[in-house]
């Protein structure tokens, strides 16, 4: 679906908030079309890394590089999907999606066409006129996805997109996500604390250490997303492995004071 093939790289990235060092010497590369999952204990800087990836936060050390081909119909190369959905309550579903197209050179007709297209993709065609406050959490996140897809992104940056949903909705959306990401073929960086999501979606699973966040280990899962099921033995084994890596750090992080 996407015409872009973009490679995203972090080189020697470090960051601190005041005296609190949150990231230290992080080197990562996301290959074109690949799904990179960032996991780690609380406070390890996953979300901070994601902000740095997309240029929403300037790192104190190191740099972010993007190279490769960005398709001509891409309106916003580095596009986010948010944990809290970030929908404008005063616009309808269609209005929220069209918001991100309005600053471009697209005509009104082209905009409407794209909006229709992504709403159909995410199963929201019947809800085009609904207000966010009328929608369930799962539906709201689908709007977030639709909005992200509308700009034909070169990179999808997803910040714990399923965390705000209940377990049942999460399970439903997880499969939809996997399908959507596989079809889109967009370079994706996906932050989560949920190991099941990590093994379901990730091709390069990056395990971060406790604060200050460093790359502890990178686990590769080379199976295509399409055929994966969370009960698959190999995936479960990887999940165990990931948990083993994280468990001690997670226990320590849990007992840490947030202000460091």
């Amino acid at each position: 679906m996407t015409g872009s093939a973009v490679r995203l790289a972090l080189e020697g990235v470090g960051h601190a908030f005041g005296t609190l060092k949150v990231l230290d010497g992080v080197d990562l590369v996301a290959e074109p079309g690949e799904v990179m999952v960032l996991i780690g204990p609380s406070g390890c800087g996953k979300s901070t890394l994601l902000s740095i990836f997309g240029g929403m936060l300037a790192p104190q050390a190191g740099r972010v590089r993007m190279d490769g081909a960005v398709a001509p119909d891409c309106l916003n190369a580095l596009t986010y999907v948010f944990q809290d959905f970030a929908l404008l309550p005063w616009r309808s579903v269609a209005g929220n999606v069209s918001l991100v197209l309005e600053d471009s050179a697209l005509s009104a007709a082209e905009r409407a066409r794209r909006v229709e297209e992504v709403l159909a993709l995410t199963g929201l065609s019947d809800f085009a006129g609904a207000w966010p406050k009328q929608l369930s959490g799962g539906m709201r996140q689908r709007v977030g996805i639709a909005r992200a897809l509308a700009v034909r992104p070169a990179v999808l940056l997803m910040d714990e997109p399923l965390s705000a949903l209940d377990a049942q909705t999460r399970g439903l959306l997880l499969d939809e996500f996997a399908e959507m990401i596989a079809r889109a073929g967009v370079t994706t960086v996906y932050v989560t604390h949920n190991l099941a999501e990590a093994v379901r979606l990730g091709q390069q699973v990056v395990v971060l250490s406790r604060r200050p966040g460093r790359v502890r280990e990178i686990v590769r899962i080379d199976r295509p997303l399409a055929g994966r099921h969370i009960e698959d033995a190999d995936l479960l084994a990887i999940e165990q492995h990931l948990w083993a890596l994280i468990r001690d750090d997670a226990a320590l992080a849990d007992r840490e004071r947030v202000d460091g």
């Binding site: 596009t79 986010y80 948010f82 404008l88 918001l99 991100v100 309005e102």
Partner: peptide, 20 residues
């Protein structure tokens, strides 16, 4: 978070003021 959303989608300054 709404303003950051607008920025992350490359909306212009005036667009963000007017629409968000």
């Amino acid at each position: 978070n709404l303003i950051r959303m607008g920025q992350s989608f490359g909306l212009g300054w005036w667009s963000i003021v007017r629409k968000i």
